[in-house]
Design a protein around this nucleic acid. Structure first.
Length: 306
DNA sequence: GAGGCGTGGTG
DNA sequence: TCACCAAGCCT
């Protein structure tokens, strides 16, 4: 928890509704504090941005970067990935986690080839129609790859807005109102609006972080409703993550890792993790992976989907 | 809308 | 040590 606001901080009357030019303060801060990330390089390309956004869904930046570069070297265009079997995508995904994302990214590449002539669409609704792309990713691609003017709201932005505008320590559940709140602070200029979107995410990722925010380094310090209110704790509304050790997810992860490391022909099902502590759980993992389309079962063998 | 879904780093 | 965390999406 940050230091409480001092009396002199509180002497300035906080402006709670419509804080003046939050966007301007974010842009100025971003101009000197933005991290140099691959997908922010000029000319990185819409496909690269799209792949990066898939990988960044729930996986930290530092783990994504090397995998992203290898992925784009192997499959420089959507058509290149679409031409490969899904199993190759799942193997290349390696240990990034949530391997369904690899399958979904492959499906999206096929859809881009078949429905959009191999060009990543620019229209938000067209993006939303692709497998694995939701409200956040669709707008992130339209804004960061194409420079269009839309609100982009991820968990970092929701936290920044919750604190700076609503005076809460943590955001409420995701809602369409988040998009409206972000839209309200976007400048009219397209390029600047893209920068404000990026800056809000960046601030939330590096300064206005969930557990130990560095308010002393925050450009919104003097206009933050949460700080002005003395950092009230509104509690954390996020769902608690279930225990991983002993979970079905762990079993799925172990099965899939074994299949990634195996030859394309796969492994006899009765030789697939025979020593797993809970045989029913192992079987459930295999079946659910097959239901998801990650794994195929033929003739007593399990292998990655071809 | 709540629950399910990987993995590795961190305080 | 271990609970929590990390640019969500789908059902």
């Amino acid at each position: 928890m940050p230091e409480p606001a001092t009396p002199s901080d509180l002497a300035e009357p906080p402006v709670l509704a419509s804080p003046p030019d939050l966007g301007g303060a974010l842009v100025e801060w971003y101009s000197t504090h933005a991290r140099d990330l691959p997908w922010r390089r000029p000319g990185f390309g819409a496909w690269g941005v799209l792949v990066s956004e898939f990988m960044l869904q729930q996986t930290p930046v530092t783990r994504v970067i090397p995998h992203l570069e290898a992925w784009l070297e192997r499959w420089p265009t959507p058509a290149d990935l679409a031409a490969a079997p899904p199993a190759d995508a799942v193997r290349q995904w390696a240990n990034l986690g949530y391997p369904r994302r690899a399958l979904w990214l492959h499906r999206a590449a096929v859809e881009i080839r078949d429905r959009h002539g191999g060009v990543v669409p620019r229209d938000v609704d067209a993006l939303l129609a692709l497998t694995g792309i939701g409200d956040y990713t669709a707008r992130a691609v339209a804004v960061f790859a194409y420079g269009d003017r839309h609100p982009v709201v991820d968990t970092n932005t929701r936290r920044v807005l919750a604190r700076a505008i609503d005076g809460r320590s943590q955001p409420g559940p995701p809602s369409r109102r988040d998009l409206e709140a972000m839209a309200a602070i976007l400048p009219h200029d397209r390029d600047m609006s893209a920068v404000v979107n990026a800056a809000a995410m960046e601030l939330g990722a590096t300064v206005c972080v969930a557990r130990a925010p560095r308010c002393d380094a925050c450009p919104l310090r003097d206009r933050c409703a949460w700080r002005a209110a003395g950092y009230p704790d509104t509690g954390d509304v996020r769902r608690k993550q279930a225990r991983y050790e002993g979970s079905d997810r762990q079993a799925r992860g172990a099965v899939l890792k074994r299949l990634r490391d195996a030859a394309a022909t796969g492994i006899r099902i009765d030789a697939l993790l025979p020593d797993w502590p809970d045989a029913h759980q192992r079987d459930r993992a295999i079946t659910s992976l097959a239901d998801d389309g990650l794994v195929e079962l033929d003739d007593g063998f399990a292998h990655l989907a071809r």
